[in-house]
Nucleic acid binder design. Sequence first.
DNA 1: CGCCTTTGACCCGCGC
DNA 2: GCGCGGGTCAAAGGCG
Length: 323
Amino acid sequence: MAVKTEDYAAVSFGSSNGYYNHNNPLLLSSSSAFDFCQVEKSELGFMELLGVKDYYTSGGAALLDFPHFSPKATVLPSSPVVKASCDGDSGKECSEVLNHQHHQQPATPNSSSISSASSEALNDEHNKTVEQGVDDDDDEEHDEEQQQKKTKKQLKVKKTKQKRQREARFAFMTKSEVDHLEDGYRWRKYGQKAVKNSPFPRSYYRCTSASCNVKKRVERSFTDPSVVVTTYEGQHSHPSPVMPRSAIAGSLMMQPLSVSTTNLDCSLMPGNYLYHQQQQRPVNPLTSLGFAYNNTNNINSASFSQDNGLLQDILPSHMLKEH
DNA sequence: CGCCTTTGACCCGCGC
DNA sequence: GCGCGGGTCAAAGGCG
């Protein structure tokens, strides 16, 4: 099956400890974005695939400058990272796909694709209210109305589907106790489906922001129930609504462990998640992983020094001792 | 009351 | 044409 390279930018990453398997059917079939993708091992780092020059890996784990994963989530690591080669043409690397997509769809908050999507949605809403405004007791006309509604609904579905195919998708595997990871955005669940050959259902979420068309799917790996596969689709047209001040303070406290992260190409990131980071605070991979972000976990400098929490999962012990 | 989840129904694409 | 699986809708209900 042929897939246009601009349609999908599927990125997955696995680990040296068995999460990635070249022949793993889960990785290829659990998300429809991967149905068409041939996954290959690559020497590229995950952040590199996304256009990030500086990143930090250690001991098979990576500190990704990524949306605020909940502290209970471990981002499954960087190396070896997989690249998705689409279109059955093994010569095409994922980085090319991403760049291609970047050129085609500049991820400015007011990109044409986003504004057209929202205007279409508005038009649909308008049509709906116009239809509902016609209150007729005649059964025949009522049936006709129902028919029209049905037809328009179908058209709407078709339109959204056409649009959907152009959205880039990014899939991530995280080791997490909770299915729905905190990533700094607000989501509304709009569906849940059983996944074939899996005891775990797949959940469908949509960004609650009015004009934002970003969706994500969350499912648990049936081969390893501790692994959650999250697939983002689309790009946020707004900054993250969840950015408490404690995150900023926390990022400063964490600075001894921070690494420089420069030359970031935000447009390549799922959900444009670096938007607020560049605007509001220094980039810090640790805060991005949620250490300083989620104040419900009361992670502060004191508790940090005593209990490293997720850091123990991510950082090798010798690194923790250094601080 | 607003926001969110749940869940059955529905639509669509695809393979046989 | 039919069945299956993926994705979405929307009414109903829960919760703070």
